[in-house]
Amino acid sequence: MCFLSNLIWLSSNLCSNDAAQPWQFGFQDGGSPSYEGIVELHDDIMFYLILILVGVAWMLMSTIRKFNWNHNQIVHKYLNHGTVLELIWTISPALVLIAIAFPSFKLLYLLDEVIDPVMTVKAIGNQWYWSYEYSDYLDQEGQSIEFDSYLVPESDLEIGDLRLLEVDNRVVVPVDTHIRFIVTARDVIHSFAVPSLGVKLDCIPGRLNQFSLVINREGVFYGQCSELCGVLHGFMPVVIEAVSLEQYLAWLSDQIPPYLTKEGYTPCIYLCITHLPSVC
C-alpha cells in the first residue's frame, strides 16, 4: 500500500534531475543541445512506434477473434496470393523506416561534428577512476592541469551528496562554450557517459575518440562508466560541473599556482580569456 501510494505520489510529482533518481520515469532534464536532439528523435520515433503498435495489435486481435475455426468456418482457400496486400505490407514499413532513418542519420552526423572548439578536455579511463587533462592551460613549467577523479566512499559522503555518484574532483567547465572532449583509456575499454548531456563514448586504449559539448545551463551533471571494465566498474562515476565563465576562471586560477601579471590575471587566465573571446 505504501509502495502504491509512493508510486502515485511520484507519478503526480514527476521530477527529474541531472542524475538518475529512484523510481524515475522518463528522461533526465537535458543540459546540452545534443541531449535535446536525442530526446526530439526519441519522441519522433515514439510517434511511429505507437502507430505501429496500435495498428498491429488491432490486426492481431481482429485476426484471432474473427478468423478462428469456431467463428468463421469459411476457409479462404482461393486467397493464396494478394499482390496489392503484399505491396501494402512491404511499402508501408519501408516508408516508416525512411521517416525514422533520415532524422536519425542527421542527428548522428551532427553529434559527430567537432567544429572549432574553444577548449579541450581529455578524459582518460583507468581501472577504476577517471583522469582529466586541460591541455589548453600551462603553468610556468609547461605543465597542463591534470587530476584524477575518484568516487567518494559512502563513509565520506556529506548531506546532499549522491551515493556512488559523487567524486573528489569534478570536471569543471564553463557554460555556453564549445568544448571538445577527447577520451581514451589506459588499461581496458571504458565508456564516458553523462546521460543528461547526451554523451556516451567508448574510451579505448591506444585510440582517441572525441565529441563536442555545449552546456546550456549551470549545474552538476552525473554519469557513470558504461562499459563493463572490471570488478569496480560501477564505482567510477563521471561528474561534470558547468559553471559561469567567472567561476570557471576562478577555478582555473586555483588549479595553477598564481603569479599575477600587470593586468591582474595569471598567464593561464589570460590564455583562457584569449581562448574564449566569444564569451568574455
Binding site: F47, Y48, I50, L51, L53, V54, G55, W58, M59
Partner: peptide, 18 residues
Amino acid sequence: FDISAGLGLGLACSYAYW
C-alpha cells in the same frame, strides 16, 4: 475495416502522445 480502424486508432494514439 481492420486496416482503416487499426491505423486510424494508431494515428489517434500517436497524435495524443504528440
